[in-house]
Amino acid sequence: MIFLHMGGTAYMKKNRTLIRTLILLIMVAAIGYTFYINFFKEDEVVSKGSTAPNFALTELNSEDKFTLSEQKGKGVIVNFWGTWCEPCKREMPFMNELYQKYKDQGIELFALNADESEFSVKKFVSDYKLTFPIAIDKDQEILNIYGVNPLPTTFFVSPDGKVKRIVTGQMTSTSFENYIKEILPK
């Protein structure tokens, strides 16, 4: 027990300052960690620059399996949407158009419906004549992993699998095309 020693020597004083510094440091570190976890660390939500979490879903019409990790080398757009969501509807025509324009240049677009009935989604797809791959995100599993709120939210994933851009809310045709160019494979 160093504390119990007494003495007026400079050595003791130095020792004491050291111990005090150490105790304070331990406490500040513990509190700092708690603060970091609470106020600075985001809750396992995908952020710009992080690797896009992998998922595998069955495409609605072709019934092919789409696995994100197998799209390396392609720029991938992951769009979360719902048939009841007005801004989602407004995005659909230009997404359809620009998908056709860029799909041969190594751009993949995958639109995940937020867990609606197959009937509703199929009806929507035929109403809007959508040509890009669509899947139903059962139980909103992927939506939750990506921390999406609200709809629509669109993730632009670079060919290296990193999230380049996250767009919350409605895009315009121009902004959408600009974002596509950011993730265009070279």
């Binding site: 609606e116 009937f119 509703s120």
Partner: peptide, 18 residues
């Protein structure tokens, strides 16, 4: 099919939620 039926801003039947 409209799970949560209402008339949208265009006056057309639509669904409010899923």
């Amino acid at each position: 099919y409209f799970p949560d039926f209402y008339f949208n801003s265009d006056g057309v039947p639509d669904t409010k939620t899923r």
